[in-house]
Each structure stands twice: as C-alpha cells, then as structure tokens.
Design a protein around this nucleic acid. Structure first.
Lengths: 345, 345
DNA sequence: CTGAAAGCGCTTACAG
DNA sequence: CTGAAAGCGCTTACAG
C-alpha cells in the first residue's frame, strides 16, 4: 500500500557514501564498524523508514537450510494430528524461504523425553523451537538456557511461568471455562448444577479452564453451583468408576463438563445410571468418542481450541522471527475457543 | 521437509545443455522454443520434480509492482471492517513479494458501481480481483470477460453461477442454516417453532442459509416448524413493523432467527410485545446491536462467518496464484461458521 | 574497520 | 529460436 520506491540497502549506502557491506553490518549488528559511521547509517535508515526486504534476505541466505523444530508429546486424541496439519500448511508457505520444519515426538508427558528432545534440537542446529512445555523446574531452566543461546522458543498450548520465551500460542482457556458456564445456562438454566471432570490441574492451561468456569459461576452465574470437580487422567476404567462415584454421590447434578479423555468409560457410567441424554454434557476438543456422542445426542456441545490454527500460527511466528527478526505484536497469541455442535460437522 | 538439494533452473539448463533463459521460456510458456527442446526440458523438469522458487521469482520481478484489487460494497455492519483487517494482515505478509493490494468501495448493492469498479481495476492494471459479486447478469458476463483477459477473480462471501472464477471464499451458509436448527433444538427443544427474518433471498449466500435451515427441519428436526420467513432489508422501521406483524400473527413462535440487520427495530417490536428474553433469539454476524443484545441476554447466540479470516484467505489465494501460478486445492474455500455466545467476548 | 565481488534462483531486455 | 549478461535486494567470504 505504499507508493514511493521503497528504500534499499544500496540507497542508504549511497547516501552515506559507503559500501553496502558496511550498511549491512550496522543494520544487522554484525559489529566492527566505526561508531560515527554506524550512527549515521542508523539515522538515515530511520529517516527513510528502511525495512529490509525479507524476500531478498531469504534468497541471500538460502544456501544454509534454517530449521525449526517442533517438539510435541504424543497424546491419544485428534488434537496433535490437527496441530501438525497446521504446521505442515505453514511449512509449505515458508519452504521457499529456505526454512524447513521438523517434528520430534517424545513419550507422553515425559519430562526426560522432552529434555532430550530439546538437547537434540540444539545439537542438530535448529534455529527455533516450538514446544508444548511440561510444567517442570528442569524444563524451566532448560528454556532459559535456550534463550541465552539465542534460540527463540514458541510455546504451544501450554505456558511456563518465569521463562524467557518468544511467544505463547494457545487457546484462551480461561475464556473457554467461562463459555462452559454460559453454555450450561443456555442448556439447563440459571440454576444449573455442574459436575466437572478434568485432567489433573497441574498443567497451567487445564487449570485456567477450571478457574474460568469457577470465576464465572462466582461472579456472574450465582444461581449455578459447581458441585464437584474430579481430576482424572485419560484412563477409561478410572473414568468409569470416578464418574460413577460422583454422579451417585450427587444425584442433583444435571450438567457434566467433561474436559478430558476417558469419555468411553465416563459414558458407560452415565448410561449405567440411566442418565444418558438426560444430563446436559459439554465436552472439550474433538476426540472420536466425542464426535460419536455429539451425533448421538449424548454430548450437546464441545468447546474446541482450533489445533490446526495453533500449529499454523506457531510456525508462522517462529518463521517471522527467523526471517525478519521480528517479534510478534502480542506476547500471547490467544486463539478463541470455538463451540461445535451437532450440525458443525 | 526435503533433504536433497532442490532442483533449480540452472540444473535443468545444464542437464539439457542449454541456457537458463530457454528453460525459463519453456517452463513459463513464454513461447518461441524449438519443440524438441521444449519437450526435453519439460521431461527433465518433471523427472526432477522441479518447483520454481517463489522467493527468487518474486525478487526477480520486483521492479514492477503487482497489484491486487479488492472490490467491496459498503454495508452498515462490522463485517467489512473485519474483512479489511484480514486483508491488511495478508498484505503485510506479501508486500516483500512486490505485491500490493488496493481496496475499492462501491455504493451499497449497486450493480453499476460494481461494474465501474471492475473497469477501473482493469484499466489501472490490477493483476487479480477480489470481489463480492452482485447477483446480476451484467456482472456475470463482465466476470467471464475478465477470465478471458487472464485476470483471476476470487469471490468473497457471495458466489456467482456460470462464471469463470479462481476460487470462492466464504462461509458455509448452508451449514450455518443447519446449525441454527440445532441451536434452536438445544435452546427450545424438539418442537421449537421458528420465525425467520432474513435479508432478501436473492443473494445466493443468503438463500443457502435459509435452505440449510429448511433442509435440517425437513429431514432431521421433524418436530420443529419453520412458521414463517420474512424477508426485509436492513431498514429499522420496516424491521419493526414486519417483526411485529409476524409475531402477532403467530403467537406460537418461540424462536426467532434474526439473520439480518434491522435488529434495533426488530427488538423494539419484540419488547413491545413483552417477548424480550422470552423468545429464543439467534442472530447472525456481529453488528453492534447484536453485541449489546448478547450481553443483555436478548440474543442467546449468533452464528458468525469469520470475516477477518475470509479477507485474509482471499488475499492469500490471489497472491499464490500471482506468484506461483498455482490454483487453490479447493475451488470453494468454505470457512466454518462459528457460534458466539455471551462469554465469547 | 571497510570495500569489491560473487552469489542466492529467478526474469528480462538485447543481440544475434 | 537461443544465449550471454545484467539485475532484483540482500549476505558473505576475502582482501586489505
């Protein structure tokens, strides 16, 4: 949307009466330039509002293959497949810039595996890392070491306090908790009585969702009750017995917020109690049993976190950092949760 | 995600024992090459799976500014502001490719203005056009003429039959109609009685939404009734009187699908009848009165069409055509409708 | 500390 | 019909 010819390195060099190499050194902080010259170059660059041409930049550096590493831990739902789909889409867009992306997968929720993957990525010369960080002290200090080595880190989905990172890309979990409250109001009325089944609240992101729901109930939906919150990992048998226990203990529960795996077991419990399609159930994400239950009327809505979009964004942000040395406008890139219902598919 | 060095024009030239210029002529169809040479070049290119480097391509053609024109007609809601926001985002990403984008706005729903804008764009040398086409014979033939001149057209939001276009980017309106049906089931039960207020059904896209709702009711929600459909433009006074008429005539209506502007007038009618917050109202898009009514509990949900995403996509598709000469994988790029509720904001 | 030159992978006059 | 050369805007050894 500009008209006048965009300023180039060459123009600056001519205006300063020096060579392009020197201008390049100044503007890219490659050192060894006489201070007064450096100052002059910077002035002129600013006066012209010089913006380096990223296309030319990339072409010039094309010989060395710059690599981004995405480190994911495996999980048993469609989530990561979609994240990867988004990453691959972005990869296609940036490959002509001489930037490629590799994906490393570690064992499910293993801190050791994640540390190992990070070490590998560094020794293999990756220039940026995309990571779903485990909430662990060792990861925290490893991340900060990365920052010191000049390797930018983009967090995906989960967030780590007290670390030096480039950007966090993830769903607005707090909001998704609040949205669950509103959904229950729409489905069951102002006095909904909610049972929540959640993954362990140790992960920052998971906890935020719970806090969102809680905050909404305490401040805006005061007629509603959060009857009980049960934390379970995605284990079908545990899900069965814990869901059963909760519903037996609280026959007044009319809403279930199923924010984790273990849905097959959970549904067995709901059915055994004759509550299937009676309880208003809202879930999270899009695993296969969720899709089936939505079609079947067992789940009324699910709150998704747009995994494909997350994967795509994370790569684009790392890319822009690498190619234009630019940091994202927002330190936290929060993707809006989206509500899916039966006809959404 | 490839390993072996990517083939270049130069490699092909060397393998064929000819110059890069000639290879370029063959691969870009610039003509005047001896057939047997052309054949050989094409063979080798295919064998190597040669993909031109778009970054280099763009740098080479940077001297001439390639322009994309987006032709919108003004409308009184936030929709176009968001579309433009998305376009500007894409514009930022592609400016270093030497491609810029300009936006022309015509009078609201004026076929003449749209034709004029198209003519202007052509004579000003735009290389691609993004357009919200009016459903009109003159537009149809003008579009087809564009195609003949080699100017690709990307449709936004609305779609035109029997035309030669590059891609259609828009919301899946049929699906959004079906989603409305499911929302009413969730909000009012299996026997919901729905009144629909829609913009004139002449626009393809608007009609699809209506058809989606109708189809859902006829095939899946057979207990529900579509009591009446009233078509009104976004005129507050008309909206008032027509909404009033409809609700008086059909006191059994318990759901309102407000798929157009004129909401301020419409709400006045609803309030005058004492039905505010009693009727289950679902709307479409995100104008200001909609936001207010959602916060107020007057509207329970609104089905949005992600205008920013649409604008962004349209530009990227035009861009990819211009720079890589590639057509999008899908002729129709349907963006999923998204459901927004009170806590979504 | 600085400049001249070659190169990234393509396109484009120009000459023949 | 074809090739040699210059150029797009940057980076990178290399020489001094």
């Amino acid at each position: 949307m500009t008209k006048s010819p965009r300023p180039t390195l060459k123009m600056i060099a001519e205006l300063c009466g020096i060579s392009r190499g020197t201008v390049d050194r100044v503007l890219n902080g490659r050192g060894r330039v006489k201070p007064e010259i450096a100052r002059r170059v910077e002035e002129i660059a600013k006066a012209l509002n010089y913006q380096p041409n990223t296309v030319a930049k990339s072409l010039a550096t094309q010989r060395r293959d710059i690599k981004i590493c995405a480190i994911l831990h495996v999980q048993g739902n469609l989530f990561y497949d979609d994240v990867i789909k988004g990453m691959e889409k972005a990869a296609g867009e940036i490959k002509d810039f001489g930037i490629s992306i590799a994906i490393k997968r570690g064992a499910n929720f293993s801190v050791e595996a994640q540390l190992r993957n990070i070490d590998e990525a560094v020794s293999e010369g990756f220039k940026a890392i995309i990571l779903i960080p485990m909430s662990d002290e060792r990861i925290v200090s490893r991340i900060n070491a990365l920052a010191a080595e000049g390797i930018p880190v983009v967090y995906l989905t989960n967030f780590l306090d007290r670390t030096d990172y480039l950007c966090y890309v993830g769903c607005d979990y707090f909001k998704s908790g609040k949205m669950a409250a509103e959904l229950f109001r729409l489905l069951a009325g102002d006095r909904a009585r909610i049972g929540m089944i959640s993954p362990p609240l140790t992960m920052q992101s998971i906890k935020l969702r719970f806090l969102g729901l809680k905050a909404a109930i305490e401040t805006e939906y005061m007629g509603m009750t959060l009857v009980e919150v049960v934390e379970i990992p995605s284990d079908e048998d545990l899900a069965y017995s814990l869901t059963l226990d909760m519903l037996r203990k609280h026959p007044d529960i009319d809403c279930l917020f199923y924010a984790t795996g273990g849905l097959v077991g959970g549904f067995r419990a709901v059915k055994d109690l004759g509550l299937y399609r009676k309880l208003k159930i809202v879930s999270v994400d899009l695993a296969k049993p969720i899709m089936e239950a939505i079609n079947d009327g067992g789940i009324l809505a699910t709150i998704c976190q747009e995994p494909e979009d997350q994967g795509y964004r994370a790569v684009r942000i790392a890319f822009e950092r690498l190619v234009a040395h630019s940091s994202p406008k927002e330190k936290n890139f929060l993707i809006d949760p989206s509500i899916k219902i039966r006809q959404s598919f």
